[in-house]
Simulated scan of single mutants.
Amino acid sequence: MINQLRKIYSSVKVYKDGSDDLSIDYKWFTTDKNEIIGIRNDELTSKDISLLTTFLSPYNVQFPTPTEAEKNWRKIIFSAELMEEKDWKPSNSFRFVYFSFNKNQIEPVLFKDAIEALFDKQVPILWESEHEGFIIEQQMQEEESISYEQIIDILMSDLYVKINFFVGPYKKDIADITLHYNSLTNVAKRVFLYTNKSVVTYVEAIPFILTKQTEAELRLDISKTILQEYIHDAETIKMIETFLKCNLNLSETAKVLHLHRNSLQYRLERFFDKTGIDIRQFHDAMTVSLALIARK
């Protein structure tokens, strides 16, 4: 394979431990035989890198050495040929959990160690870059799992790392796994533009996904038509968003907003009188929720 790559990229070099430096002028990859190879950055386009990562693992001196499980996952996700052979498949239901944190907040090796300490076992991680990737969580019977909200709290308090998680749904088999992985990647990299939440599930992201599919002009028209004169009313928008977050619970919303319940009731009725939309009703609330997403 290395000789074939040299026909396309003249700068291909193989790293030999102790005899070479991992120059920053090169993009480094590992092969399925654990060889580390580099190609000069000026020979690569973003399209080249995307193609190479389908059969090579990105390598960085700060990245953990890929485990056998991680190599297998990368094969079944990115190699159609190996998927057909079905020479390896997960033994339990699994889900992909996207994570991202700010650049240079924590080294990948330390992050992986922290995650495995929290799960109390080895956890496959597929790195997209030095600050984002996917945790692959397998569902184990009779095992108490830690929530991703708890993980965030621990990482913040112990390592001062601010992190976001996008939690995918559990899958029982590897059918269409490449499509599923690519779909989650697309959604995960966009959903946090629309929400302040640090942990978002696939189910919660569906409205963002659907809204994103519409044209910008239509999104603008929806938000103006539904929100009407309140589209730029920050106080009313905050009230509605809080009411939706509190699952249409008047008492809980009033508590969060430090309002008397009757005052909140009056404001909701005023919104209904002005727009004809009663967000105390589920279907109206769902429509307004979509309009708020479109507004952003």
Rank of each mutant, 00 (worst) to 15 (best):
K75Y: 06
P90F: 10
E269H: 14
R219I: 10
K75C: 03
D113T: 14
S50K: 13
I115W: 10
A254G: 10
I136Y: 11
E204L: 03
I136D: 13
Y15T: 07
K255S: 15
I115A: 05
E143T: 14
N3H: 12
E84C: 02
M239W: 05
Y230N: 04
L118R: 08
N41C: 10
N104C: 03
N182H: 09
S263R: 14
K47A: 12
A69Q: 11
E217H: 06
T211S: 11
I279V: 11
T242A: 11
T236G: 00
F101C: 06
A114E: 14
H180L: 13
D120L: 08
S46R: 13
I152M: 05
I277C: 01
T67P: 03
T287Y: 07
E128W: 01
T225G: 00
T287C: 10
F192W: 00
E269G: 07
N92W: 07
Q281G: 02
K121E: 14
Y194M: 02
L118Y: 07
A294E: 04
K7A: 12
E128R: 07
V256P: 00
F119H: 06
K75H: 06
A188N: 05
K245N: 13
R267D: 11
V61N: 04
R280S: 09
V61Y: 01
A234M: 04
E132W: 02
I135F: 08
E132H: 14
L44G: 08
D21E: 03
S145E: 15
L118F: 07
R219K: 14
E215R: 09
I8T: 14
A117I: 09
